[in-house]
Design a protein around this nucleic acid. Structure first.
Length: 294
DNA sequence: GACATTTGACCACG
DNA sequence: CGTGGTCAAATGTC
């Protein structure tokens, strides 16, 4: 892994050199430099893939598992994370301890889209209460789903991964015990379509190249930054976990589809979730999204 | 002007 | 009372 990082740094240095000498570069040397940079990052990418393959094969055990879901991003699901996740989200339905959830079950859970999903239905929720000056809901948010997503391997790794929805950042906060702030996003179409979807993005302390993304609420807007396409094949998700069912077995099949439906909207969209993590780099048509150039 | 992010303050919850 | 989630004014970008 260190080798990969050094190659990436080498590429970054080449970019810096190019940047500093850009004005006096001839087109020929520019082309050469770009080729070298491309090759360097390509090498890093290849090495990374090898590392991931090794990890994936070794990690059919209860170890962290990397799911290579596209050329652009990875997903890393760690058992501890999963346990935490299940504890938080699974509530009484799931608990730690017994047999590991099968990959198929997790694939079902993630709707084939390379993500883990489950729900916690929370009843109620505060009323609108026009008399109160503000409404700051915290609990009773409905469903919640957490995924770990690697930062983009190319470009600005500060950017949270694109999930084909348009998000508007509405807050950022330092979190106790976290080296990195947590960013809060809500669906861009919240007002237009009363879309309640939100997400939180936070870098992991021990792996700044991995984001923990927590989704809350389901999209009712059904609007995506890129339309689902046949080429946007579902990423390969190889996820394992020590998360386990309770004493009795749990059938995740149809219920899970319902969950996915609830999370990402009904009307058949939940059945085809390929768009969530497309294999090709989605165009950032929303130029405001995740802008960091201020 | 519309829509985005930033950021300090406010507020709910444990 | 501390922490985390949200609001909303200020500000930036197109």
């Amino acid at each position: 892994m260190e080798e990969v990082m050094s190659v990436i740094f080498q590429g970054l240095n080449m970019v810096k050199e190019l940047e500093s000498s850009l004005p006096e570069k001839s087109p020929e040397s520019l082309s050469t430099s770009l080729d070298e940079i491309t090759k360097t990052f390509g090498d890093a990418n290849e090495q990374l893939k090898i590392v991931l393959e090794i990890r994936n094969t070794a990690l059919n055990q209860p170890k962290p598992v990397i799911a290579s879901c596209s050329d652009q991003m990875l997903m890393q699901i760690e058992p501890d994370m999963m346990q935490e996740y299940w504890l938080r989200c699974g509530g009484s339905m799931l608990s730690q301890g017994t047999e590991a959830m099968t990959q198929r079950q997790l694939m079902a859970l993630d709707g084939g889209g390379g993500r883990i999903s489950t729900t916690t239905e929370r009843s109620g929720g505060s009323g609108s209460g026009s008399s109160t000056p503000r409404q700051r809901r915290r609990k009773d948010e409905g469903q919640e789903q957490t995924v770990l997503v690697a930062a983009l391997r190319t470009g600005n790794t500060d950017l949270p991964p694109d999930d084909n929805h348009t998000w508007r950042k509405y807050g950022q906060k330092e979190i106790l015990g976290s080296k990195f702030p947590r960013a809060y996003y809500r669906c861009t179409h919240q007002k237009l379509y009363n879309c309640p979807a939100k997400k939180q993005v936070q870098r992991l302390n021990d792996d700044p190249f991995t984001f923990r993304v927590t989704y809350r609420g389901s999209h009712t807007c059904h609007i995506y930054s890129t339309a689902p396409t046949a080429s946007a094949a579902a990423p390969t998700a190889l996820i394992s976990s020590t998360a386990a069912a309770t004493g009795h077995s749990v059938d995740y099949g149809p219920a899970v589809l319902d969950i996915a439906d609830a999370m990402f909207g009904s009307g058949g969209i939940g059945a085809n979730m390929d768009f969530i993590f497309p294999s090709n780099d989605p165009p950032q048509h929303d130029h405001h999204r995740f802008r960091r150039d201020k």
